[in-house]
């Protein structure tokens, strides 16, 4: 392998890893606050991509505008899902919300089948992301720069919200002690809604960029990337945003580099994540940056 292809593999890893990371953040934030594995999260990934498709084909919107609108609409939908499917179950045993999230996941997938039909759809891709550019003698797809850079910008925005704003302080507080936060005047339900909104927005952004990379839309397209992103979150230490980012990037690198160095294993690509999951659960169940998953009192 020469250095040019290696750089290409690196960029591909970074691209794939960023996409996992964006989705993993949503899993980890919701888990951190509600101790809920939100199975419906992967549908936000799928819906974000479809909404862009709709924006372009039905409303004739330019691609960037369609993307922004799709992210906003998906974020709103994430909030609605929380209010309708999880909020009424806040005081119920945790398993109830988990089951509810599986129900929501099936429901959204089926709604997507009804509205978008099950046939895979081709996605429009802006030309400027497609034409390779030559950088220092290396052929680079602009897409493999665009995805990591936009992901980075989104993650920096997230970090700003979590560590520099009042709502972020509220999020960090309720992730450790909901009752005391409530006592201090933190509007807990509004902060949880905001968390769902942010997580869904990031998942939508990921789904939209995924559709640029693998330009086919299907109602079940969120399932596998969603599972992998969840594994990335567990690997990084569920509940930790930094962990989700590291886990996502690590998984992206593992997948791309294993296939690059051992092309024979390409067929098992989707299995790497599960091997990783089993390894984490066996050797370090709390993940890289996770705290012990003790039950909250």
């Amino acid at each position: 392998m020469n250095s040019a292809t290696f750089i290409q593999h690196m960029l591909n890893s970074l691209t794939l890893g960023s996409l996992y990371a964006l989705v993993a953040i949503g899993y980890t934030m919701v888990y951190g606050i509600l101790r809920l594995i939100n199975f419906a999260h992967s549908e936000m990934f799928m819906l974000g991509a479809y909404f862009v498709f709709w924006g372009i084909t039905l409303a004739n919107l330019p691609w960037p505008v369609a993307m922004v609108i799709a992210i906003v609409v998906t974020a709103t939908l994430g909030v609605v899902v929380d209010q309708v499917a999880y909020r009424p179950l806040r005081d119920a045993p945790r398993i109830s919300a988990l089951i509810s999230s599986i129900g929501v996941s099936f429901f959204l997938q089926n709604v997507a089948i009804v509205f978008f039909q099950a046939i895979p759809r081709e996605v429009y891709r802006p030309q400027w992301l497609e034409n390779p550019i030559i950088m220092g003698g290396v052929r680079v797809l602009p897409l493999t720069l665009f995805v990591p850079l936009l992901s980075l910008a989104l993650m920096l925005g997230l970090i700003w919200i979590v560590y520099r704003t009042k709502a972020g302080l509220g999020m960090r507080a309720i992730s450790k002690d909901i009752e005391t936060s409530y006592l201090m005047g933190v509007p807990v339900n509004r902060i949880i809604a905001l968390t769902f909104g942010i997580g869904s927005a990031l998942a939508a952004a990921s789904g939209i960029m995924w559709a640029l990379r693998y330009p086919q839309l299907q109602p079940i397209m969120g399932t596998i990337p969603g599972f992998k992103a969840f594994i990335a979150a567990v690997f990084g230490g569920i509940g930790s945003i930094q962990g989700a980012v590291i886990g996502g990037l690590a998984l992206g690198f593992i997948e791309i580099m294993t296939v690059a160095f051992f092309p024979d294993l390409a067929g098992y690509r989707d299995a790497f994540a599960f091997v990783l999951l089993i390894a984490v659960l066996m050797f370090k169940p709390t993940g890289l940056l996770g705290e012990r998953l003790e039950d909250k009192v």
Binding site: R172, S181, L183, M184
Partner: peptide, 26 residues
């Protein structure tokens, strides 16, 4: 009306300043 709960219940992972800011959340 505000209450300081039994057992302190301060936020161990937040700084002293952040704990105080949280008290002023409303």
């Amino acid at each position: 009306i505000v209450m300081s709960p039994e057992g302190r219940r301060i936020f161990a992972h937040l700084s002293v300043l952040e704990n105080l800011r949280l008290g002023a959340y409303s």
